[in-house]
Amino acid sequence: MSRVLIAGCGDLGLELARRLVAEGHAVTGLRRSAQSMPEGVQTLLADVTQPQTLTEIVNIQPEILVYCVAASEHSDESYRLSYVEGLRNVLSVLNEASLQHVFFVSSTGVYGQETDEWLDEGSPAIATHFSGRRMLEAEALLDGYPSTILRFSGIYGPGRRRMLTLAQTPEQWPEKNGWTNRIHRDDGAAFISYLIQQRQNLQLDPLYVVTDHQPLPVHNLLRWLADEQGVDYAGREMPPVQGNKRLSNQRMLASGYQFIYLDYIAGYKSLLDAMD
């Protein structure tokens, strides 16, 4: 059993908290709002961007920090505060605690290159937007800490219906047919939990790309979702595949992790079945 602090209890953090409690860990969830937590999770009301609210962390003495904060808005300033300054503030407090490992949920947005080549952990992170640059800035703060960076592709799952909804309106489909990569929320949370469980037995890598088995062009995904929902897109031409990148999950697989949803078909079928 470990004492785990989850900084940022949105959708991913809450699912991770549920899994860790079920596995016998002592879990504290840090969040700004006094919303309900899963049973067995201690709540710490604090704001990572406000250092004076973080002093109680020392009393928890967490051995493991999972930093999975979400920015409040898609802006450079919000990303700087949430990911760079927020992580800096939490790490500063935890310098006084018995911290053994940090898991930082980053983003595959750090790979700004557009290519048909497969990208993995060894590929250069060439960030072309502020979001990717801020993530790389936050990742650099972990130099010198026992840490693992988790670069997530697009998270989908219960409550995340954007692509399902978009598939219902073919006239709104994007003109560009770029590659898309995704990870089901349950696999994202389960993989972090798996690494925490295996920390003593497995030599953790400092970096993992967290994504499923099958990248595909976005129009292929939308057509499949439209077919599954009985949406007519006749007359809608398939644009040539152009843009974005394909991401490899071979390091995830090499860790021994067993996927819940191997690809978009398994993952989205579970969402569509839940809607019936």
Rank of each mutant, 00 (worst) to 15 (best):
S78A: 15
R236V: 14
Q42W: 05
P240M: 07
I260S: 14
A266K: 12
A254R: 13
P215C: 10
S147W: 03
Q229T: 03
S107L: 01
E171H: 10
S153Y: 02
A167R: 03
R134T: 14
K176G: 04
F130Q: 08
R223S: 14
S36V: 07
G159Q: 08
R18Q: 14
P170F: 11
M238N: 13
T128V: 14
S248G: 04
I155P: 08
P38A: 09
Y79N: 07
N177L: 00
R162P: 08
W118I: 03
T128A: 13
I196R: 10
I155K: 09
L14Y: 00
E15N: 12
A34R: 15
D263F: 07
Y264C: 13
W224N: 07
A140R: 14
V66R: 12
V69S: 10
E63C: 00
T108R: 10
E15R: 13
L65Y: 08
R246T: 01
E121N: 07
I57Y: 12
G154N: 08
P174H: 03
I265P: 07
V84A: 08
S248D: 08
Q197M: 06
H213W: 06
N249L: 04
D116G: 09
E117A: 15
A140I: 04
I183N: 05
T53Y: 12
Q35S: 14
V210A: 05
G157H: 12
G112P: 02
R3A: 12
T128F: 10
L272D: 14
I57P: 11
H213L: 08
D47H: 03
Q35A: 12
Q172W: 00
P239M: 02
A7Q: 09
G29K: 04
A127H: 02
I57V: 15
Q52F: 03
Y79E: 06
G112Q: 03
R182S: 11
K269P: 00
Q258M: 10
I196S: 12
K176T: 05
E39Q: 13
E63Y: 00
Y257I: 04
R19G: 13
E117S: 15
T53M: 11
L44K: 09
W179D: 12
L81A: 15
Y83A: 03
R32S: 05
L195F: 06
L54P: 06
C9P: 00
L271D: 08
L216Q: 11
Q172V: 00
F259Q: 13
T128M: 13
L166Y: 09
I265K: 15
D47L: 01
T115L: 11
S33L: 01
I265S: 14
L216C: 06
G235T: 02
E121L: 01
V69A: 13
H101P: 01
E228R: 15
G243S: 03
L166E: 09
F152L: 11
T211I: 03
D186Y: 03
L225Q: 08
V27Q: 06
A97Y: 02
S106M: 01
E63D: 04
